[in-house]
Design a protein around this nucleic acid. Structure first.
Length: 431
DNA sequence: AACGTTACGGTTGAA
DNA sequence: GATTCAACCGTAACG
């Protein structure tokens, strides 16, 4: 099945072709999944007007760049069943992730968070689960390769062991690597790897290896895998500093997954402030204008990488502005609270266009009324929380923003509470 | 109805 | 520079 629309027809068509083809090739779940392009489900999509050619799956929604202040260009995102915009394969922006956690800590049920933020409940569940487990809201490390366990250092030790005891078994070497602290249980080479090393390297190690001989051995990565997920945000203490990210100056957390549970408990006096603290600790808090950013801001995904004009020396982005394709157009206003944790925006205002941004109805897209929820179990955050209206998620199309708003649904207690959370409205029931 | 899980198509970045 | 591979992504659907 192929849909061709006037806007973004290429994306629409291609996407559906692929999905349908995949479904045809894959029996079972995939089959039913892809059976819906024009199916009945469409009518059930909450918040999506009946009769509009919205697709519930793999539908590339043209997001006019005009939304972000540009006129003639378009970019593509996708719209999920809830009407939320996402970029397939890319993480949700931190702001959304943070918002999910924040709302959860306010006692809002995941299903309601899902509806409000227009993020699939699976995603909400995943993010909350990860947060509960690791204390981090950040996505995992995308791309790259696993660290090689057979680093020059390890090889050197293996060679030493072998030279010291030519009859040593591979498993003995393995044990010694562990015992000597050369490796830990996570990066110790397998016996077969050691055997291979013995066979392929040690045997021919009469001469120094390439690292030992001609160049400095590459340092063992402090972060075994993906330094890039060290908090890629500028350090609050050096908002105008040089590149951060995986380089000196970044807190030595071993990647986002292993961030110490310094994130305040969900039951802390102020979860919001706690989050802020966390962000500060980890450098997640963006400085003000001119803040420096890691060139590998994976977490900002679709945000910096694709949406921000590279401004080397300013935000550390090295990709050319050409790549600043706006893939996302997301709501800003609904995440204003989050922006309070990313004060003054992680990016220069001029770079924020289209950064997962959208009119008021973008990420918190128009949709069904935000169902009332129980009151928050936590007191509102301290008044000291800085609020910077939607910097991160700023959308620069006021008219659309206005148009997309709906009057808040009556009796939306949680919404009211959240609305006042940071003194900024949460378009929980926009439309 | 809510939610944990998982297949899927996708992106990413190191090798 | 292109390709491969294995990591992760969010969605949608299942159970």
């Amino acid at each position: 099945m192929k849909f061709t629309l006037g806007l973004g027809s290429r994306a629409w068509g291609v996407s559906w072709e692929r999905t349908a083809a995949a479904a045809a090739a894959c029996p079972g779940r995939a089959g039913h999944r892809a059976s819906a392009p024009s199916g009945a489900r469409l009518g059930a999509v909450p918040g999506l007007p009946q009769g509009r050619p919205w697709l519930t799956r793999r539908c590339f929604l043209p997001l006019p760049r005009a939304f972000a202040g540009c006129v003639a260009e378009q970019t593509y995102g996708e719209v999920n069943q809830l009407g939320g915009v996402f970029v397939n394969g890319r993480p949700l922006p931190n702001a959304i992730r943070l918002r999910i956690v924040e709302l959860a800590q306010l006692g809002i049920r995941p299903c309601d968070i899902s509806r409000q933020l227009r993020v699939s409940h699976g995603c909400v569940s995943k993010i909350l689960a990860r947060y509960n487990e690791t204390g981090s809201i950040l996505p995992g490390a995308i791309g790259g390769s696993k660290p090689r366990v057979t680093t020059p250092n390890v090889v050197k030790h293996i060679r030493d062991y072998k030279q010291g005891d030519p009859g040593i078994f591979a498993w003995e070497i393995r044990d010694r690597l562990l015992a000597d602290g050369v490796c830990d249980k996570y990066n110790v080479p397998s016996v077969s790897s050691i055997s291979r090393i013995l066979r392929n390297k040690i045997g021919s190690l009469a001469q120094p290896g390439p690292y030992e001989a001609s160049k400095q051995p590459p340092p063992q990565p402090a972060l075994p895998y993906n330094h890039i997920y060290q908090y890629p945000y500028p350090s609050p203490v050096s908002p105008t500093g040089a590149k951060m990210g995986s380089h000196p100056g970044v807190p030595g957390t071993a990647g986002h997954v292993s961030i110490p549970r310094s994130w305040p408990s969900a039951h802390s006096v102020s979860n919001i402030l706690g989050i802020r603290t966390f962000m500060e600790q980890t450098g997640a808090l963006a400085g003000s204008e001119g803040a420096a950013y890691s060139p590998k801001m994976e977490d900002w995904a679709g945000v910096n990488r694709t949406a921000f004009p590279a401004t080397p020396g300013v935000n550390g982005l090295e990709k050319p502005a050409l790549e600043a394709d706006i893939k996302y157009s997301q709501s800003a206003s609904g995440l204003s609270a989050v922006s309070g944790f990313l004060p003054a925006c992680a990016y220069p205002a001029s770079n924020q266009h289209g950064v997962y941004s959208a009119p008021g109805g973008g990420y918190l897209a128009p949709g069904p009324p935000w169902p009332p929820a129980q009151g928050p179990p936590l007191a509102p955050p301290g008044a000291g929380v800085a609020v910077h209206g939607g910097e991160l998620m700023t959308f620069k199309h006021p008219s659309r923003e206005v148009a997309d708003r709906k009057p808040p649904s009556p009796g939306s207690k949680a919404t009211d509470t959240l609305s006042s959370l940071h003194g900024l409205p949460i378009p929980a029931s926009t439309s």
